[in-house]
Design a protein around this nucleic acid. Sequence first.
DNA 1: CAGCATCCGTCAGGATACTG
DNA 2: CAGTATCCTGACGGATGCTG
Lengths: 124, 124
Amino acid sequence: MEADKLKDEIFIQNCPIRNILSRISDKWSILTIFTLEQIPVMRFGELQRTIPDISQKMLTVTLRTLEQDGIVKRQVYAQIPPKVEYSLTPRGLSLLPHLNSLIYWAKDQMDSIMKDRKRNESKD
Amino acid sequence: MEADKLKDEIFIQNCPIRNILSRISDKWSILTIFTLEQIPVMRFGELQRTIPDISQKMLTVTLRTLEQDGIVKRQVYAQIPPKVEYSLTPRGLSLLPHLNSLIYWAKDQMDSIMKDRKRNESKD
DNA sequence: CAGCATCCGTCAGGATACTG
DNA sequence: CAGTATCCTGACGGATGCTG
């Protein structure tokens, strides 16, 4: 097991693992990746309409970040009006199972977590 | 497959799944959980020393949040000076494999992601 | 030792307006 | 259509001081 090595790395300030995690575990990133899993190729406006409460700015920022990290592919068609299509890259696809296992864990635990929260509220 | 149902749920505003994800995928939460995996029982000061750049305030807030969600257990010993021990609950332990698979994915992709970022920088 | 309370700076991120 | 640019506000989170 290389857990000890990982242990060393992850506690470094500006640790690249933490950096990457923070970018994919971001609120909008998860939702964007999840959306592109459901509909593999989407245009900008389509994404914005599908993710109800995302602002245009945050969708742009999120897509740019995911593109920089090679998780999302941006396909531009040189035409008027412009057409840009987004999809997951192979790396993005390889991320899906891990992200999904986390999402399904959250879904499974959801009800009992909510109960625990309420219990703690009334405890005070 | 219940993917369609999940699809509906996750796009709701204030979706509980998203809420839970945002709390566990938080920068300090991941690090705290990961630390408690390495050393299963730790005192407050011990945690603070192990996670190098966490402030006292953020460690407190993070531990309280994780406690509310039943991921971390807080054991108080009624003595002077105070002694408080933190550990993962069964739910916290059940979260570990999913979190770890994400961490290891990030570790595997780290090098090539960093290269992709630099490539995009020079592209502009 | 293990916090809580307070103050305060920074910046994520929303709203709005404009463009190729 | 798919953005960019600008302004602005509130929340995150650090620093400091105090307490059981």
